[in-house]
Simulated assay, not measured.
Amino acid sequence: MSVATTLKTLLLSGIATVAISASAYAADMILKLGHPANEQNTWHLASVKFAEELKALTEGRIEVEVYPNETLGKEMDVINGMQLGTADMTITGESLQNWAPMAALLAVPYAYKSLEDMDAVASGELGDRIEAQIIETAGIRPIAYFARGPRNLTANREIKTPADLNGLKMRVPNVPLFLNVWQALGASPTPMAFSEVFTSLQNGTIDAQENPLALIKSANFAEVQKYVNKTEHVRSWIYLTISEGAWAKLSEADQGNVMEAAKRAQAYERELFTAQETSLVTELEAAGMTFVDVDNAAFAAAAKDAVLNSVSADIRPDVEALFAR
C-alpha cells in the first residue's frame, strides 16, 4: 500500500469517526414535554409536530420527547417540575392563575364572541400582557396557543333564551365562576364530578350539562340528551409553554428556532381543530342530536354582572373592557 493510499485511508477513517461521533451526539438538548391529552387529541398531534419541526430546524441538535396521558405527571405536577428543572414543557391555561392572575382571562364566560374575536385578543396587546405576567410570575414562557372548542349546553329541550333556563337542573364543574353565572342566568346548577354526569342524566338527577363538542361525543351524551344548545358560553385558549430555565439555555438562534417551530405547530393544530369541530357536528347529528341556535347576546347580557362579581379585582378592569367591546 502506497503512502498516499495509506494517508487517504486514515483520512477517510477519521472523517467516518467524526461523522459517527457527530451522529451519536446529535441531540445537544432534549426537552421533555408532558401534557394531559391522549394520542388522538389535536394538542398531542401538534406537540409531535412541534418536535418534528424543531428537530428539523436545528438539524437534530434539539429533540423533544412528548409524554401524553399525564405520563410525565398531572398538569400542576408538570408545571412545578418545570419550575424545579425536572420538566421542560407543557400545555396549560387558566391553571396558571395560581401564579399569574391574568391567566384567568383565558376562560371567562362570554368574554369572546367568536373564534376570530378570541384570536384577536390572544394575539393582541392583552394577550401580550397575559404572557408577560406568566413569564414573570410563573417562570414559564408561552410560545404558541391552541383554541379549545366552545362549551355548549346539552339538554332534552330547546333552550334559546335565558328565560328557557328557568329551574333547569344542570351539572357544572366545581368552578365558582361557572356556578355563579348559571345561577344568574336562571338555571339550578349543581357541581358534580364529570365521571358521574352520564348516570345522573340517565336517571334524571340532572337535566342538562355543558361541555365542548369533543367531550359531548366521547362521553356518549347523545344517548341521554337530545339537543346541543349552542350557547358557546366559554371560548378559551391554552398555551404551549417552555420553562424559563430551558429557554435560557438556548442560543438566540435556537430561541428563534423554537418560536418558528411553535408557530408551525400552532397553524397545524388550528387546521386539525377546525376540521374536528366540523366533523363533530356531523357525528353528533348522526347520533340523533339536534343543534339549536340561541340568542347569545341575551345570554351575555344576563351573565355580565355575575361574571364581573365573580372575577378577582386584579382582572376585573380587563373583563369589563372585554364586555364593553
Rank of each mutant, 00 (worst) to 15 (best):
Q266I: 11
P36S: 06
G186I: 07
P36W: 13
I30N: 14
K55L: 08
N41L: 14
N80M: 14
L115E: 11
N69C: 13
V48Q: 12
L240C: 01
G85S: 02
F178W: 15
L10E: 11
L84H: 08
A193H: 11
E125N: 05
R235Q: 05
R157W: 09
D318L: 08
V121T: 08
G124R: 02
V172T: 13
K217T: 05
L12R: 01
K230F: 11
Y112K: 11
I62W: 06
D305W: 09
A24F: 14
A286H: 00
I206P: 02
V66R: 10
A26N: 13
A208R: 12
V228E: 04
A184K: 06
F146P: 05
A138H: 01
I20V: 05
S218C: 09
A22M: 07
T9N: 11
A248D: 09
N69D: 12
D207Q: 02
E277R: 01
N152M: 06
L179H: 03
P142A: 15
K226N: 10
M192N: 02
L272Y: 01
V197G: 00
N309W: 13
I242Y: 01
L168K: 06
T199E: 06
M259G: 00
F146W: 00
D318F: 15
V234H: 01
A321D: 15
G288H: 01
L280Y: 00
I30V: 13
G73K: 14
A261I: 04
N152F: 06
A246W: 03
A297R: 11
L106G: 03
K169D: 13
T92K: 07
T282F: 02
Q40E: 15
V108S: 09
R157H: 08
E244P: 05
A111V: 10
D254Q: 00
Q183N: 06
L284H: 00
T241Y: 11
W182R: 12
D117I: 15
W99N: 13
V234A: 01
P162I: 12
A219R: 08
L280P: 02
D164Q: 00
K217I: 07
A163R: 04
A155W: 05
K263C: 12
M76N: 13
R171N: 10
A16G: 10
V224E: 14
K55C: 03
N152L: 14
P68C: 13
L54Y: 10
T199Y: 12
E285W: 00
P189R: 00
G186K: 10
F273K: 02
M76W: 13
V292D: 01
G245N: 03
S279A: 01
T274H: 07
A24R: 12
T42G: 05
K160T: 04
L168D: 15
I62Y: 13
E75L: 15
M170I: 15
I159V: 14
T205W: 06
A262E: 02
D305R: 09
R148K: 03
K304M: 07
F299A: 06
A267L: 07
A56Y: 11
W182T: 04
P189Q: 00
L215D: 15
V258S: 02
E210D: 15
T278H: 02
E223P: 14
L215P: 11
T9M: 09
A111K: 12
E320Y: 06
M1V: 11
A248P: 05
N229Y: 08
A286I: 04
E210G: 08
P109A: 10
D207H: 07
F50C: 05
E320F: 03
Y227D: 08
Y112D: 09
